[in-house]
Design a protein around this nucleic acid. Structure first.
Lengths: 338, 338
DNA sequence: TCGATTCGCCGAATCGGTTCGACTGAACAT
DNA sequence: ATGTTCAGTCGAACCGATTCGGCGAATCGA
């Protein structure tokens, strides 16, 4: 069931079979047909390893995801799905590699064993050793997210700083004076998670510009944590009338906390954030948010990666997205309670 | 940066380097050290394609997921995460392949190009051409789920029939007389999705045994659909006092539909189902459910697959899980309303 | 009619590992 | 002294594809 067998049965040489398949040199129609017949009969497909060895490329890309233990957020899931989808469309396979913690062997295998032609990296930190590792290995890669030195690499990212600033401005325009920022989980932010820090920066800036009062909090990436977090926030700062967040997974919990306190959204309290479009739409009530086009981003990342693989010398490209805020059902005029 | 280069610098032959690395033949301590030094200096790692070509195995398994377009349910996500995790622990890489629709090329590549040593298949139908294809290809595979002829393959599955029957019995014990089954989306069930049909069978059986009145409905796999579905169900069958479901993603929507109608759970209406443990716990209110240990199932599937890869002649193994119902906050005494 | 060109195909080298058979020298037993 | 064993190493074959140089036959122009 290898190319030699096909060649024998078709009465030609192995190279002829190869050329008939790849079309890199002319082969007579008649011979081509004979070969094709044999191939169909035997259901032959070239061995991927042999081809990869000779060609020096694997037609596979690596997708490095956060450690599998933690639940992926809806946005991350959107990235994964769209990367897989776009890769399939380009006839590329996707090798999944969890990174961080105990899974560094997996990451190392992917990077170093020439198993993939390039890598897409998720959940990047401001200082990220995986990026360092990839840079020194020379393997083409594209980040969904960026480090503190973003010129060194190609990436697709969401402009959390601008978006959170816009959220705060929107709230200010509505008359809110005391607003909170609910960030991602504290470990992630402490580890230098870029979006977390950039969101803080945007928040602080907008708070200062509009002369508001702002509070910041980290919050675990699930509903339970969101509920506790907002309850505590409101206990400590009863004057709050709105919250902006980049923690989409916590939103359902925040809704519950508000409901428990008898606060109606958006009459008594406003919620706004940055979230995957699909997620924001399906929350109840639908979240007013800057809609991150997660499924487009994965596709763009794959595009960039394919380019880099084809031509490693090409200058780095960056795609910073700042989607507009979609007004849905969770923001309203801000006025002091009591 | 290949084995020959290492050999040259260490002043030994290529085979000696290979033996030093694999340990398949004795190599003197001194030589080993010299080789290791060179390797560390150059950061050498054997080329995966070359090794795969010679060894005839890739140390990679394929994971065939439902088409990426649809959102994965929490349970499916749990499967994926745990498969990736377990594979990483066994030093195996995971190649992701969407299947169905436009992605058949991807599936075909994985099966036929000797890119993987084995495959784990998700979301299996009673009649599933992918299973047929895998059987005829001879590639080892394990299903998370099973077809209508389950003896032919190895699998790990949830006993939806028994579990839904138990759910109904539980409701009957609580005094409910009119209950509904909310199934997965209609396309999936129509396509012969096993759990959908087995759940129906279990439902019908328990309904008959306990002499209840039962209604069945299919429902899209998201909150929105869950809300519409239950609203409609209650409009058409106002006598319903409980619902059992295998559609975990629809549960939040069903809660909303009940809230909209002014029904309190579990006082006025009971909800029970089969769901990923993590999901059931994090719903609000927490769902009384048979907890599917998604993260364990993926690990078991990988175990089975590793066995089959090692010894293809081994008899097929089956793992049918029927976890007990965890009583949480959504079932209570059934009594007619009005 | 002869040389140049083109077409279609073949043989051999190659990618980077693993593995088998064989060789060497030292240790050991007889 | 001689044969045996064994640890340690080497050289060459091999896995299954791609690709380059070359060769024979047909075609073409002069």
């Amino acid at each position: 069931m290898n190319i030699g067998e096909i060649a024998r049965r078709a009465g030609v040489s192995r190279s002829t079979v190869s050329y008939a398949l790849t079309g890199k040199r002319p082969v007579s129609e008649q011979t081509k047909r004979r070969i094709q017949t044999v191939i169909d009969e035997l259901g032959y497909r070239p061995n991927a390893s042999a081809r990869a060895l000779k060609e020096g490329r694997t037609r596979t890309i690596g997708l490095v995801i956060p450690p599998a233990g933690k639940q992926l957020t809806d946005m991350q899931l959107g990235f994964v799905a769209s990367v897989v989808d776009a890769a399939a469309r380009a006839d590329l396979d996707v090798l999944l590699s969890p990174s961080g913690g105990e899974h560094d062997r997996s990451f190392e295998r992917v990077v170093t064993g020439r198993r993939v032609d390039g890598v897409i990296l998720m959940e990047i930190r401001l200082e990220d050793e995986r990026v360092t590792r990839l840079l020194q290995s020379g393997l083409p890669f594209v980040g969904i997210g960026r480090t503190g030195r973003p010129e060194d690499m190609s990436w697709v990212d969401v402009d959390y700083e601008t978006l959170i600033a816009r959220c705060v401005q929107h709230l200010a325009d509505l008359g809110h004076r005391h607003v909170a920022l609910v960030n991602r989980n504290v470990e992630l932010v402490a580890a230098g998670y870029g979006p977390g820090h950039r969101a803080q920066a945007g928040f602080d800036r907008a708070i200062a510009e509009r002369d508001l009062r702002g509070v910041r909090a980290c919050c675990g990436d699930d509903a339970q944590a969101g509920q506790t977090c907002l309850r505590q926030l409101l206990a400590e700062h009863p004057e709050l009338t709105a919250v902006a967040t980049i923690n989409e997974a916590a939103v359902p919990g925040m809704y519950r906390a508000l409901a428990d306190l008898g606060l109606t959204v958006p009459r008594d309290f406003s919620v706004i954030g940055v979230a995957a479009q699909h997620w924001a739409e399906n929350l109840h009530p639908p979240l007013t948010a800057a809609d991150v086009p997660a499924s487009e981003m994965g596709a763009r990342a794959v595009e960039l990666l394919i380019q880099r693989i084809a031509e490693a010398t090409t200058p780095h490209r960056h795609l910073l997205l700042a989607p507009p805020i979609s007004l849905r059902a969770t923001t309203g005029p801000g006025r002091a309670r009591d």
